[in-house]
Write a protein that binds this DNA or RNA. Sequence first.
DNA 1: CACTCTGTATGAATCGTTCTACGGAGCAGC
DNA 2: GCTGCTCCGTAGAACGATTCATACAGAGTG
Lengths: 349, 349
Amino acid sequence: MAGSVNIKDVARHAGVSVGTVSNVLNRTDRVRSDTRARVEAAIAELHFVRNESARQLRAQRSRIAGVLVLDITNPFFTEVARGVEDVLGAAGLSVVLCDSDTDEDRQDRYIQLLTEQRVQGVLVVPVGPIDRQVTRLRRQGISVVLLDSEAPEGLACSVSVDDVGGGRSAVQHLLALGHRRVAFVGGKGRESQVADRAKGAHVAFLQHDEPGAELVSVTARALTIEGGYEAATQLLGMPEAHRPTAAFCSNDLLALGMLRELSAEGVSVPDDFSIVGYDDIDFAAAATVPLSSVRQPARDLGQLAGELLLEEASGLAHEHRQAVLGTELVVRASTAPPRRKSARRARRA
Amino acid sequence: MAGSVNIKDVARHAGVSVGTVSNVLNRTDRVRSDTRARVEAAIAELHFVRNESARQLRAQRSRIAGVLVLDITNPFFTEVARGVEDVLGAAGLSVVLCDSDTDEDRQDRYIQLLTEQRVQGVLVVPVGPIDRQVTRLRRQGISVVLLDSEAPEGLACSVSVDDVGGGRSAVQHLLALGHRRVAFVGGKGRESQVADRAKGAHVAFLQHDEPGAELVSVTARALTIEGGYEAATQLLGMPEAHRPTAAFCSNDLLALGMLRELSAEGVSVPDDFSIVGYDDIDFAAAATVPLSSVRQPARDLGQLAGELLLEEASGLAHEHRQAVLGTELVVRASTAPPRRKSARRARRA
DNA sequence: CACTCTGTATGAATCGTTCTACGGAGCAGC
DNA sequence: GCTGCTCCGTAGAACGATTCATACAGAGTG
């Protein structure tokens, strides 16, 4: 049976008071070594496991932090989570990972859950505006750091990436190669990250200032491999005269999906079409046509966010900071100058 | 301030007793509608958020289930987690994801954490033998289901995949194509899944019974893309006479890494070398040389495990069951008959 | 011997919620 | 008017660990 053995059972079994057992658990040095040994023996014998709910109730705070990401199947976010884990784990906090699946309702449910748990802190990659939820968390004394998204001044700490710059560098690269019609592939969602990457793409076009150059917007159902298939199909459906010769995809999943679908349809990358992705996940380099991609320092992002959270949670004087990390364009094999007009056209399926 | 407003504050503010507030929260129908409205107004006004620790303490059980996987950056496991979420989320349980990173210590720490939290249940992809931990969890009244690994009869429910069968079908495919020297690529770990896949590979060889056919074992540092690069290097380092003409990799990460490294070294897949992966993650189909792979029904696996957990946790009479799901070999472009002897050899870098 | 000081152990109060036993009000039936 | 309901609401005892004020024993000091 055993059901649940508590500190009182341990105390009785060891012939001491509950206070002493608690001391063995939490302030080991305050108890004589023979007493401690007796208590520890009782703990082992009865298979006592501390009830964290009771502990938390008393302590008014848990030893857990939550990480809430947009898409747990996207390696970029799991890499970020690992970065968080690196830092918080070392500080003795446990990290639990939650997946909003880019759904505001799910995001809010998880935030509610974490609030009810009175976690130490929450690191969240937000879906849509999140000011209200941040205020609510703060009101419960829960630290918040925004991940991969810049917080409004004074609202919270945030660690983001210069997505405008990243988007710009991707498109500059394509323009420099000689492409004039470039697709920007985004999703239906209104993630600020994607919007910023799009903005960066526009900036690159404005700076380029070549007459006739055109940025075409393509919208996939979701920022997934599937979405990439779909976006490729959309591109192939365009009349050749207006079809872009290159695409900047707002993440690598899209880019890999598009790469695959184009190859399957006989469009050669990079000879017939160039692709730049975003995130530089491991799979980007591992693609057989290794993908040019805008690298985000995912692990660093997570680590820095973890540090900011610890700083805020420590209760010391704390000024919210907005860290913005840089990106790095990694050029691989999926980008090349466009084929000359005279060359044979991509075969349609 | 606000700090923490509790049910008592709400009661005072609404002019009722704490019991009534609790009833509004938990058994809404037992309270007259005007009273309820008053309480709800007070809750909203004071920004009351239920303290889940106290609730759990009283209820002796949380509304959370934990999923503990080997590698959170491997899309196979996150897909399994989504399957679990599908089922448990619908049942009103929240799911938290933990990453053992194939490390027994980390695994044990997370199990300890989940035990202290008195979660409803734990779904775990085990690292090494786990009987002791299962017994311990069970003793605390926590349900356990093993994922992707078959539990010893009577110990726990488990949902696994016929890895021996999967391994066999992969290697049978290669043998049928005419390969005679085949590499099995595993890792340093002692995961039972990998061992079973290796066993399946051996079975295929035994059944094939062709003199001179040879199964070569290659060990990567880890079952990751990096590990795949490394395994490819090992293969390329072998004297050509003994070098396998095909590899069965124990997961897709390895396979994709190997595919990439071989391509980079001028070895063409599948012309010079065939590769079969395992898991059939989305990235496998999306590789530019789409990967032949043994598909595991990841999401189904998670869903079924979730259902078994709910059944066990419901407290009804419950017999532990071992579900074993089948695999399906998905043949794509990374496998082909071996090049004839006379053909040119792969160029070394 | 009286005193203080130090090192240990104790016991009760506390955290916030749930839930059971109970009570008062209103109503029907006799 | 009494009994027996139902409906709503209340009071207070749990749940299990932590912690603080306190007690006590023994050593050291004068």
